[in-house]
Write a protein that binds this DNA or RNA. Structure first.
Lengths: 329, 329
DNA sequence: TTGTACGCGTTATCAA
DNA sequence: TTGATAACGCGTACAA
């Protein structure tokens, strides 16, 4: 089952290899009639263009790398959707790399994308420390999404703003003991915590931060401890929807009703939050729009490699559903 | 910012390029000391191996293509996880392609993988007709997952079995009017419908099949029509969890309680079904195991390109949660 | 409009 | 253990 090459097609049609190349990329320089003959012959012979060879020979500029932190969180599906739409319009190829929930595969995935010689990497949800990100960004241009890194192109949603809105909503409902279930502290992911802290402080309330992980199970455990402890909160703001699910798990386990006994807010407006029985109050970051924005920055970066880094900030919106209400009594 | 190549590293160390190549792939033929010197110099110069060139020059055999139908459905995240685990152990690279919910990008994504010269494609959830799949599989070896195709390596979960279990569960609960909210008919995705049909027939009941799409919104609309119609069912079995979400949406809209007023069963045991407020009764296919199995078949296919095609079938299990119960009256 | 020739960065073969 | 040298399949000036 020998592989057909351009050479074979050229010979079969009786033209040069260069012409076949031009024909397949429909570039000027080939008569319409010749092109037809070439494409027809290619089809007939079962020729499949070799993208690997093309990329080696080409001068680059048409491949975006995409890093996805976690396939289990469908916020990344939205981000990808946005990026893909823009990339399609610009006729750019996408090469994917997938991380892990705990960030343990970030470096490896980025390395793979670099070795694959993508022209720029669009990274959704990196957990690598800022300094490492900057180091990598010096070798392969990067666009960080959901996470701002100084001196690196970034597309972020204002997390502090979102956290403030969420916390204020709880305060407005009358809650006084509001806990924040925080993600592990790491560069670029502290703003939700800050937004919570400053809002709580401004209201003259006592902050209560419990640090958890990115796993729903751990979040459930940590929320459980919180609920069972003395002076349990009447409202819990979780760092994201997955963690909020854990909180809901903990509530269910204790026969407590979200929104009535304890209010819960998540973050991301993932599809999980939209389940009818869940109906989680959360913060919407509009992943598709962020993904589009990121792709646009990436394209710009390809055009102007030396341009100064650019940050794009958007503002999330609070989505009030049924897991928030006035405190129980 | 000239790219450093193997040549540069070789010159810098004072050895041949071939030796650098061997050193980087830690293959025999390089003294430990020389290897150290090479790797050290590489690091110092900022050398990044060019995977594109490597794949062009190499004889293949170490790259798996992975097709993911839809990033919004986290069943595919499980499948990917399983495949990645096996690929990692075998030191194989993964190249990803992403489809679309309606199957409209299947051909394109597979074409891209073929052009990327992957050695075999592991396809999760293809919607292409059987004949087209077979045609493509002749050019690039394929392993179809969640979907059996004759003469093509396939890893499937017995959908008929799962659908029977789900339907029987509803019958055992006492339901007599059980509807099936079906996916669009297409090759390889008819077994859930068949399993439902034969179980209903065996029980002497009247089948009621309503065809919907893969979108949650459409499912909600179609389920709504069903609920509003004459002789509304007391139980609805949806072709997957996403569709079941739509059913739950429709119930919520009408103030009906799942499991009490109307029973609902989904399929996939996706994370959506596990939300505490949802707690959807569903059928678990164990995506991670399927993903592992698929990767194993893929590896086998690389080793023995000419071997006869193999099918692997596993059996799903019913997961009873709270959306199913005895009929209302 | 067409063809020639060189380069892309590796891997692999074979001889030293 | 090392070092030339030929593929690998294609892009692209440049010449015709």
């Amino acid at each position: 089952m020998m592989r057909i090459t351009m050479e074979d097609v050229a010979r079969h049609v009786g033209v040069s290899r260069a012409l076949v190349s031009l024909a397949y990329r429909n570039r000027p320089g080939v008569s319409t009639e010749t092109r037809e003959r070439i494409l027809h012959a290619g089809r007939e012979l079962g020729y499949v263009p070799n993208r690997v060879a093309a990329r080696l020979a080409g001068h680059g500029g048409n491949t975006l790398g995409v890093f996805l932190q976690d396939l289990h969180n469908d916020l990344f599906a939205d981000l990808y959707e946005g990026t893909r739409a823009v990339a399609d319009e610009a006729h750019k190829h996408l090469v994917l790399g997938v991380g892990a929930l705990d960030g343990g595969r970030d470096a490896e995935a980025l390395e793979t994308l670099a070795q694959s010689r993508v022209d720029v990497v669009v990274a959704f949800g990196l957990q690598l420390p800022d300094t490492e990100v900057r180091t990598i960004a010096e070798r392969v241009p990067m666009v960080c999404v959901l996470r701002g890194v100084a001196d690196v192109d970034s597309v972020v949603s204002d997390n502090r703003h979102g956290a403030r809105a969420a916390t204020e909503h709880l305060i407005d409902l009358g809650h006084r003991r509001i806990a924040f279930l925080a993600n592990p502290p790491s560069d670029g992911y502290m703003d939700r915590r800050h937004g919570y802290m400053e809002t709580i402080a401004a209201a003259g309330l006592r902050p209560q931060v419990v640090q958890t992980t990115y796993s729903r199970e751990t979040a459930a455990k940590d929320a459980g401890a919180l609920l069972d402890g003395a002076d349990a909160p009447t409202a819990i703001f979780a760092h994201n929807d997955q963690a909020a699910m854990g909180v809901l798990d903990a509530l269910a386990l204790r026969g407590l009703t979200p929104g009535r006994d304890v209010s819960v807010i998540g973050y991301d407006n993932s599809s999980l939050s939209k389940a009818p029985g869940t109906s989680l109050t959360t913060v919407d970051v509009d992943g598709v729009a962020l993904g589009r924005s990121a792709a646009e920055l990436a394209l710009r970066r390809i055009e102007a490699p030396g341009a100064p880094s650019e940050w794009r900030t958007s503002f999330p919106t609070l989505v009030v559903r049924s897991t928030t209400g006035a405190p129980a009594a």
